[in-house]
Simulated scan of single mutants.
Amino acid sequence: MSLPEAATEPERCPFCGSDIASPGAGFMRHVENEPQCRDAFDTWRDRVSDDMRGGWAG
């Protein structure tokens, strides 16, 4: 079963719903510039890092 492209390359921030410039670097710039999104992203990353062998590289 394949996932829709939007599941891995968001056009909107999953934390606040704002449009983002691009799914990669644009998402990271958005997260760095929006404190509420940065906090939510850090919380998400902390929760999933133990689920990934070798930790989170992103």
Rank of each mutant, 00 (worst) to 15 (best):
M1K: 02
S2H: 04
S2V: 07
S2E: 10
S2L: 06
L3V: 05
L3G: 01
P4W: 00
E5L: 13
A6W: 08
A6R: 10
A7H: 04
A7W: 13
A7R: 11
A7I: 08
T8I: 05
T8Y: 04
E9W: 09
E9R: 12
P10R: 09
P10M: 05
P10C: 05
E11L: 12
E11W: 06
R12C: 01
R12T: 02
P14L: 13
P14Q: 11
F15C: 02
C16D: 08
G17S: 06
G17L: 02
G17T: 08
G17I: 08
G17Q: 07
S18A: 15
D19T: 14
D19L: 14
I20Y: 08
I20A: 09
I20K: 09
A21D: 15
S22Y: 00
P23H: 02
A25Y: 00
G26L: 06
G26E: 05
G26F: 07
F27K: 07
F27W: 12
H30E: 07
H30C: 05
H30S: 05
H30M: 10
H30I: 08
V31G: 11
V31P: 06
E32L: 13
N33G: 12
N33W: 02
E34N: 10
E34A: 10
P35V: 08
Q36R: 15
Q36H: 15
C37G: 05
C37Q: 04
C37L: 08
R38T: 09
R38A: 14
R38H: 14
D39E: 13
D39W: 07
A40V: 09
F41E: 11
T43I: 15
T43H: 13
W44A: 14
W44M: 14
W44D: 03
W44T: 09
R45E: 14
R45C: 15
R45D: 11
R47A: 14
V48H: 10
V48E: 07
S49P: 07
S49H: 12
S49Y: 10
S49T: 12
D50E: 13
D51Y: 12
R53M: 04
R53L: 07
R53I: 06
G54R: 11
G55I: 02
G55C: 02
G55Q: 02
G55E: 00
A57L: 01
G58Y: 06
G58M: 04
